[in-house]
Nucleic acid binder design. Sequence first.
DNA 1: ATTCAATCACTGCCATACTAGTGATGTCGA
DNA 2: TCGACATCACTAGTATGGCAGTGATTGAAT
Lengths: 262, 262
Amino acid sequence: MAPSSWFDQASWFDQASWFDQANRAYQAAASARPPSSRELAYEHIRELIVTGEEPPGALLSENDLALRLDLSRTPVREALLLLAQEGLVEVRPQRGSYVSLIDPGMVRQAQFIREAIEVASLEACIENWTPESGAYVDRLLDAQEACTTREEFYPLDERFHRALLAIAGHASAWTAVQSAKGHLDRARYLGLSGYRAISEYAADHRRVHEAVASGDLATAQRELRSHLRFVLDDLDRIQAARPELFSIPAGPERRRARPARR
Amino acid sequence: MAPSSWFDQASWFDQASWFDQANRAYQAAASARPPSSRELAYEHIRELIVTGEEPPGALLSENDLALRLDLSRTPVREALLLLAQEGLVEVRPQRGSYVSLIDPGMVRQAQFIREAIEVASLEACIENWTPESGAYVDRLLDAQEACTTREEFYPLDERFHRALLAIAGHASAWTAVQSAKGHLDRARYLGLSGYRAISEYAADHRRVHEAVASGDLATAQRELRSHLRFVLDDLDRIQAARPELFSIPAGPERRRARPARR
DNA sequence: ATTCAATCACTGCCATACTAGTGATGTCGA
DNA sequence: TCGACATCACTAGTATGGCAGTGATTGAAT
């Protein structure tokens, strides 16, 4: 196998004739110009949050982040603003910006939105199904089944779900899914040790794929729905294990030690 | 009738015992502190765009807006950033910020997302249905049927859809709906003279209400779906009538005359 | 008349300075 | 010992200035 051949962006777009124009344009625009400081800050901070490196409740000081990223406060601040709109950061005026505590209600909402969009897209997905898209997804699933670590699997997982939307012609709905997904991914990273094996997720994907390929809408919807809902099981376990990360019991706590005076 | 008694925010929240905590908290936080300059700028500019006062393609200069709103560029800039993420503004680095041209694909996506979320919420809506919520919606519909102008109707329309989500326990999904709704509302404002009368929209609402109240999920879904899809018909008519507002044919044009030199 | 390069007014991007608000800490008085 | 209060370090919010990129205008050269 040559795993990188269908893994890298170029081949993805070469083969992806059904990928809609909006997505191409977005990629083109993004690659034409070096990423702005704001984009760098956004990506960096989002990564910190989603992977749990900055856990829920942690203080995200504009000044501190600006120093760490070697930027001025302005782009950092704008990144935090976007993350706040996404719900991953809570800005308390004149007090501080914090990594949002995990609000179980919020996660369920995110789950609801994601499920609503992805399940609803299956109908168009089946209509637009072609041998090419089938072959693409098939290769994606082969790769997933060969994965052993989450780090390998997660990008492919994301690509699978994104591909279904793209095939349905709703690629730009991915933005909405993604902003919901931030909350879900954060829960997944915390529930890491994996109550459910990667192989099972891949098997879920395979079942959805087969149902879509055979035009069985009801089965596809059922399989996708149950696949997406596993996150919620994780959620309960995580909350039982680490209640301090959740918003119900307590307010945010200061995590970072106060820096020494100059 | 005492129209203002169920129209104002206070009574809405007093009666809305099923309204979720997130929403209360949001309202409380919003009312506790006077709105920030950024929020003012955001609301103001969004209003300009959605109502069509600044038509698609219009230049929105940070400097110009800052002068008009008597603010510094920072809050204006941040408002534009949020609007850009929402898709209502297109920022072209070093060139200018423009009111997004109406992208029919984008509107369809917004429609798809909105429909997916609202239709999916009906199931929980029926489960959670109570006499109180029924009575609230009923009064809302009475008020809608008494409306004669769009200005009266639109807020009530929004409240109806929001109430269905709230009853379903998915009130916070409204955020996602709303950001999609910006695009749809813009289309509605342009298609103004109303190919479809307000009374018909109100009648749609009534049918959805009755189906939900009687627990007829399938009918409720069908009615809501067709109700939401009428926007798309408008869309085609508007595009035929005013193609210059759409993104397919041409690039953005300068609308504002260049100011005289000093 | 046409081409092409210099110019320039304008843009958004980023850095920096200043402000007002907040809450913990330390101090003073009972 | 304990409580009220002044202080102060730190926060995000806002204002402003300098920058580099962009594209239309201009005017000279062909």
